[in-house]
């Protein structure tokens, strides 16, 4: 990066800014995160093994995996469909839909939970009683937990795919069509390969978000130990029950999974841009 000295700050300014930024980030993020890792492994893997042997933790991890993967699959299908429609097609209400897609990012998780409770609650919800009569329990069970998770992670795939779809344009798709390819064939052979990395990126981000969802799931799950308790809820409960080492271990597992997700993303991203 060749820059003339005229558009470069003097060394002392750069050193001050650098120090301020590093101090801020160390105090706010790096140090606290390092402490949790150290606390988890202060006696080697003993606490981790103990935590993993706890049936409550095992159940919670299994449930978190089921809920997160279901939500990600739903958001993947929905996200790619909506992105294609928003970029490639013209229909009334498109702008409004495009704006509404971002709403879940700004809604408090507790409000998300409340909203789902009001509609799918089995006694007083709008649709809940009818669904309960049909034998489907939504709230305090897995379906509402999947919905809550899907809600909070909804825009992530779309936000990655839409810019890429706009970037690549539709010349190739039109060429494929004019050569006689059908809609499905065009999608699988032309469109999907060109948005592949954006989709992967969106899925990884959604997965990280879904594994960590807490507030919305807490409201709709009822937090029933061993039944509707996800890993994040176990962290809260164990911490408040003074089983701090278990809380730290589960927190570490969740944090580790999310950090793996962002590392994967940061490795993927430059490839996609170049």
């Amino acid at each position: 990066m060749a820059r003339s000295s005229r558009v470069r700050e003097p060394l002392w300014v750069r050193l001050i800014l650098r120090t301020v930024v590093v101090t801020y980030l160390v105090l706010l993020v790096a140090w606290p995160v390092a402490l949790v890792v150290l606390n988890t492994f202060q006696d080697g893997f003993v606490h981790m093994a103990e935590a993993l042997a706890d049936p409550v933790v095992q159940n919670a991890l299994r449930l978190t995996a089921v809920v997160a993967v279901s939500a990600v699959v739903i958001n993947l299908l929905f996200g790619v469909t909506i992105s294609l429609l928003l970029v490639r097609y013209e229909f009334p209400g498109k702008r409004a839909l495009s704006a509404m897609i971002d709403v879940p990012l700004s809604v408090s998780p507790v409000v998300v939970g409340l909203a789902l409770l009001l509609v799918y609650g089995s006694r007083t919800g709008w649709f809940g009683p009818a669904l309960a009569d049909a034998g489907i329990q939504m709230v305090f069970a897995t379906p509402a937990m999947v919905m809550a998770t899907a809600f909070v992670a909804l825009p992530l795939v779309i936000r990655e795919v839409v810019p890429v779809l706009e970037e690549v344009g539709d010349e190739q798709e039109q060429a494929a069509r004019s050569l006689g390819a059908g809609g499905a064939q065009t999608f699988w052979r032309i469109t999907l390969p060109s948005i592949k990395w954006a989709v992967v990126y969106g899925v990884v981000l959604s997965l990280a978000r879904s594994l960590g969802e807490f507030g919305a799931v807490k409201v709709v799950s009822g937090n029933i130990v061993g039944r509707t308790q996800t890993a994040t809820l176990v962290v809260e409960q164990k911490y408040q029950n003074f089983e701090q080492t278990t809380a730290y271990s589960v927190a570490f597992l969740l944090a580790f999974a999310s950090v793996v997700c962002i590392v994967v993303v940061s490795i993927l991203r430059p490839k996609e841009e170049s």
């Binding site: 993020v29 995160v33 949790v36 998780p109 990280a208 594994l211 960590g212 969802e213 807490f214 507030g215 994040t232 962290v235 809260e236 927190a251 969740l254 944090a255 999310s258 950090v259 997700c261 962002i262």
Partner: peptide
């Protein structure tokens, strides 16, 4: 902070 679950 984006990646970490809020409870963590």
């Amino acid at each position: 902070p984006f990646a970490l679950p809020t409870i963590v």
